[in-house]
Simulated scan of single mutants.
Amino acid sequence: MSAPNKSYDPVEVETLKPEEIERMRDEALAAFAAAGSLDALHEAKVAHTGPASPLALANREIGALPPHAKAEAGKRVGMARGGVNKALAARQAELEAERDARVLVEEDVDVTLPYDRVRSGARHPLTTLSERIEDIFVAMGYEVAEGPQVEAEWFNFDALNIGPDHPARGEADTFFVQTASGGGSAVREGGTESGVVLRTHTSPVQIRSLLERELPVYVICPGRVYRTDELDATHTPVFHQVELLAVDEGLTMADLKGTLDHMVQSLFGEGMKTRLRPNFFPFTEPSAEMDMLCYVCKGESVGNPDRPCRTCSSEGWIELGGCGMVNPRVLTACGVDPEKYSGFAFGFGIERMLMFRHNVEDMRDMVEGDVRFTRPFGMEI
């Protein structure tokens, strides 16, 4: 048996020649460098490192070499594949870094810009305040009464002892309404013959309550009213009032004063007081203007030049509205015996109260519908 042929010169496989291995490696490196995106790099990776790539096929040819030639060929292929994998990892890191940087720029969100989601709404503060006032008096045993906004003159004026010659019954103060031929309504351009008005206060609801309910009557009447005022910072032709009526046996001005104090303390906090100043209203006798202790200075600015108060002009008091004992003529007009029953009433504007409680300076903000005004008041229910 002959010995191994040590001098055998193995036939070199073409794909394992050094120049071929070098060419395959350079092609792979060039393909990775030319890849401009991760998707393109993935395609180059499959083409140059996958099972069917040139270097992978060359690696399979190593088995065709004689044993003593396999080591050198395997070393060449292994170094080439290692260099290719290293270049692939480096290029992938570069492209991922570029992608992340691009995403930060393209998908950047400026949190100071208005967003496109539908913002949550907000209840109008007039509604919230009106319901809070209602809750105060409902807790005291009063009922909430409502009535039509288009009202007969008798309810709006006559039953309240407001005579035909009273200035408030003129077109300079009241919107008169006439019935149209089609059954609708239209504001009159002249004359007051229609006998129908847009109510100028919620007092007609008090008259209807006395006519429709059994005595005693304790009602609060919130609602929208109309006056021929120009819209400005302190006036509006359409505004809201809250009026109260209590008719029972033995009611006095002391009951009225106690009710006013309770309302003001519920709305503005403990320690708040009211005062009554003599005045005249056709529907109450005696009548008074009710003032509230200034909720800012609590009266400490009076006679104190070192501590002036803009809210009350350093007078110590803020005017809220009118009040008094129900005029016996009003009771008689509603079929109530003034010898047996007495009552008190008061009323004030909700817009004015809102301006006091929240330092609103311009009444136009309440009617223009700008959500930037209503949203800060939230969704309080």
Rank of each mutant, 00 (worst) to 15 (best):
M1F: 11
F348A: 05
L354D: 05
L244H: 03
F281S: 06
L210G: 07
D261Y: 02
F268T: 10
G183P: 00
G324L: 10
A254F: 09
M79F: 13
L260N: 09
M366S: 03
V296S: 13
F176C: 09
P282G: 04
E151P: 06
C334Q: 03
M1I: 06
S266K: 12
A28W: 01
Q92H: 13
R102Q: 14
C312P: 03
C294S: 07
R188M: 15
Q241A: 07
D165K: 11
P167H: 06
V111N: 04
F344L: 11
E289C: 07
G335A: 08
L57A: 14
T200A: 14
D158V: 02
T192N: 13
L210S: 06
F373D: 02
R102T: 11
C334I: 02
E19P: 00
L354A: 15
E243G: 02
T252A: 12
T128V: 15
P167W: 00
V367C: 03
V77P: 03
N304D: 15
T284L: 12
I207S: 03
E193T: 13
V11C: 04
Y341L: 07
P376S: 01
F281R: 08
F346D: 10
M263R: 05
G141C: 02
T174N: 02
E96W: 03
D116W: 07
V105G: 05
M325Y: 11
H262F: 14
N161F: 07
V238W: 00
E151N: 06
R132S: 11
G36C: 00
C294D: 11
G335S: 09
E151M: 09
M366T: 01
H240R: 12
L211V: 06
R357Q: 15
A122S: 15
V296T: 13
G74F: 05
L251E: 08
R76D: 09
L104E: 15
L104I: 08
A152S: 14
M1D: 08
A28N: 03
K86G: 08
Q206W: 05
F281Q: 08
G36V: 01
N156K: 01
V247E: 05
P216I: 11
T202M: 07
G223Y: 09
L16R: 08
C294P: 12
R169K: 01
S342T: 15
H48F: 15
L320Q: 05
P148D: 11
V84Y: 04
S53H: 08
G378R: 08
M292G: 10
A52Y: 00
P282V: 04
M24A: 09
E151C: 06
D337V: 09
A87E: 11
G349W: 10
Q92Y: 01
H166M: 02
G170A: 03
D362M: 06
T200N: 11
R329M: 12
M1L: 13
G349Y: 10
R123F: 14
R188G: 10
E214K: 13
P18C: 02
V187P: 00
A93H: 07
A58F: 09
P222G: 08
D306C: 05
M24V: 00
G258H: 11
K17A: 15
I62N: 12
M24N: 14
M140R: 14
L113Y: 07
Q265Y: 05
L251N: 08
V11I: 14
F280R: 02
M366C: 09
A58I: 10
V77E: 04
P10S: 02
A56E: 15
C323E: 05
P164A: 00
